[in-house]
């Protein structure tokens, strides 16, 4: 069985974001990078399936500049067999359709039985790429999965809906699944596996070789939102903060009465 998991490297969301000089994305200096949270569930599910099947080969794919290889190594340490790095220094300017096209173009002739993606990325958050890859490849896709089962060519899953109810869905492979938070418990790579991952194949393919399409959309402006909530911001010594908070609770609420 051939498996593919697509991941993205994103900045830590606790960073302070500044706009870049071209005014179309965030400035990358001083950011700490990590694996997109949703993709951790995708990698874990793919590795679990590989363990279940035994005879399976799992490729991890990531698009971006050289630095994304660090995040790919984490996926390799979690249990992916090989890495396909689609080298693109300007991947942040690509729209979701272009990203999906690169992935589809890579996957087209490789006969993957199952492709795993995260539901969305934490930075761009479009929730488009996975479904688009499946549409471009002409295979079914199940999105927003919080439960996954594969048996004999059939994927059974549960999609999470608003309010916490779930929709039970299934399709046959080849297929793509997009993974929601909580699908499983992503493992932490162990030290021996981190060492082993260093020896795994990690090939770089220039994005241009995969014929990316022209952009369908442009960012015309990016900026922090205008502050609307005129909430009070308190800083300083914890003991003083505690006193200030209690004072506010007395003045503004009835909960201490």
């Amino acid at each position: 069985m051939k498996l593919l998991v697509c991941i993205k490297q994103v900045p830590d969301m606790e960073s302070r974001f500044k706009v870049n000089t071209s005014g179309d994305w965030y400035d990358e200096t001083d950011l700490a990078w990590r694996m997109n949270e949703y993709d951790e569930f995708a990698v874990e599910q793919a590795v679990q399936l590989k363990e279940q099947i035994g005879e399976a080969e799992l490729t991890v794919l990531c698009i971006g500049p050289e630095r994304v290889k660090e995040t790919m190594k984490k996926a390799l340490a979690m249990g992916a067999d090989r890495g396909a790095h689609i080298a693109d220094d300007n991947s942040h300017q690509q729209d979701p359709f272009a990203i999906a096209s690169l992935i589809a173009s890579f996957a087209k002739d490789k006969g993957f039985d199952l492709i795993f993606t995260g539901l969305q990325s934490q930075d761009r958050g479009s929730a488009q790429v996975g479904v688009m890859v499946a549409e471009l490849l002409g295979i079914p896709s199940l999105t927003t999965l919080v439960e996954f089962d594969y048996t004999d060519g059939t994927v059974n899953g549960k999609r999470e809906l608003e309010g916490g109810s779930k929709a039970k869905v299934s399709c046959t492979t080849p297929a793509l699944v997009s993974c929601q938070l909580g699908l499983n418990t992503p493992r932490y790579p162990t030290l021996p596996n981190i060492m082993k991952a260093k020896k795994k194949e990690l090939l770089s393919i220039p994005a241009a070789e995969l014929n990316p399409p022209t952009a369908q959309q442009q960012t015309i402006n990016i900026a922090p939102p205008e502050k609307k909530g005129g909430g009070l911001v308190l800083e300083g010594d914890p003991a003083e903060l505690a006193d200030q908070l209690i004072q506010l609770l007395k003045e503004k609420t009835t909960v201490l009465n």
Partner: peptide, 25 residues
């Protein structure tokens, strides 16, 4: 994180480590 988006809906944002502030409070 002083920039955390929760600040948009909060009446008060106390910028502090919860592990320090909460026990005192």
């Amino acid at each position: 994180d002083k920039d955390a988006p929760i600040g948009e809906v909060a009446d008060v944002l106390a910028v502090a480590d919860l592990k320090q502030l909460l026990p005192i409070l």
